[in-house]
Nucleic acid binder design. Structure first.
Lengths: 205, 205
DNA sequence: TTGCTTGTTGGACGTTCGTACAACAAGTGC
DNA sequence: GCACTTGTTGTACGAACGTCCAACAAGCAA
């Protein structure tokens, strides 16, 4: 006979999707706090409040968890950009500027996100399926930018190179901003990007 | 009585600087081949052909070895750029273009270098002395670019932002080029950078 | 040749890692 | 209530990790 009156349940059984999501979020937090080196299965399980064995039950390895964490954060970034585009109204030029401005504001320009990015990048060269995931997400990001540029009236032949250039500029500014926040401010990064945007979109006309 | 006639010496004693350099180069090779996760003290010692204990004799930890490896590779990159500037002659504009063109040619645009960069970046946020090293090397890189821009006649007030923008653009293109080499070619990256360079340097006049 | 300095070795140590798995219990259908 | 499914636990295991250090030997000075 077992008494279960005054004691809490030993664990709660979660929906598989919800549990996966909580593990992904715990992974992002540990990566942000401890860096790549300190992000072990045990640390992530502790952060998520579950036992170490459960991580292996949902993900074949820590690489897969990092890959899903990257996809999760990329989705958050994408949602933040969508919100910024929405708020910018319908003027194509304003939408394009909102795109780059949002890239240097919270929650995107956060040094904590960088750790997840770096962990993912470190897997790209050695794991082919992760390289494929990176290619897809990069292509998706660039395609949206090409759409914005087209709405601004940029001729189709120029779209590809302009999108590559602006993506690289934003990525480079974002990277430096996260790595050494005192080199320049988010506001300055945005101003630089918008200025470059003006130079790039006018020079080709 | 020991016979040393037909057997090779058990080890050769190297100059401290030479031994440090060989460890640094072995570290770069292991990082390029195995990635951050596979770069242990043992693996690096094996690559350098020395015993594991020797790594600890020269470096207090693997972080310090990675930091010195980063500095070593940055010096190689800097030398490659200097050579490109030298070869470009004395015309300021040609020198500026040689600067960005060299950034996408071997030995700089190599996916193998990326692993060292990523390993270093992963330490920036958690180790303050490594953050300082990054700041210094970034500032140095940008200062040289500002010098080139000044020689091209750019007014002083614009130098800072233009240098930040071009550095970010080159870094972003270089990063994507290393991460997914099939997205665009080194030649296209160079063309994009030179085109952006023209747009940025003419718009401010 | 002899003695000294010190770069170098190689194994021992305690820790932490990822993984596997038997036992347990929460929730569900009957 | 009862049996069944399966999400979850906790631990055990071997491998690999960083670090340490006593012993060894290469090269130099005398």
């Amino acid at each position: 006979m077992t008494l279960q009156v005054s004691s809490k349940p030993a664990f709660t059984r979660a929906e598989p999707d919800a549990r996966r999501a909580s593990l992904v979020e715990a992974c992002a937090r540990v990566l942000a706090r401890e860096g790549v080196a300190g992000s072990s299965v045990r640390a992530i399980a502790l952060e998520a409040g579950v036992s170490p064995g459960l991580v292996g039950h949902y993900f074949p390895g820590i690489d897969a968890l990092v890959a899903e964490t990257y996809a999760h954060i990329e989705a958050q970034v994408s949602a933040a950009i969508d919100a910024a585009l929405e708020a910018a109204g319908s003027d194509p030029r304003a939408r394009l500027e909102a795109f780059v401005t949002a890239s240097f504001a919270p929650p995107i320009a956060s040094g904590e996100l960088l750790a997840t990015w770096i962990a993912f990048w470190s897997l790209v060269r050695s794991r082919s399926e992760i390289a494929r995931q990176h290619d897809e997400q990069y292509a998706q990001f660039r395609a949206r930018l090409e759409g914005l540029l087209a709405e601004c009236g940029m001729p189709a032949p120029q779209l590809r190179r302009a999108a590559i250039a602006i993506t690289a500029l934003v990525d480079g500014l974002w990277l430096e901003l996260c790595l050494s926040p005192q080199a320049f401010s988010p506001a300055e990064a945005g101003a630089i990007a918008r200025q470059a945007l003006a130079a790039l979109t006018s020079s080709g006309r």
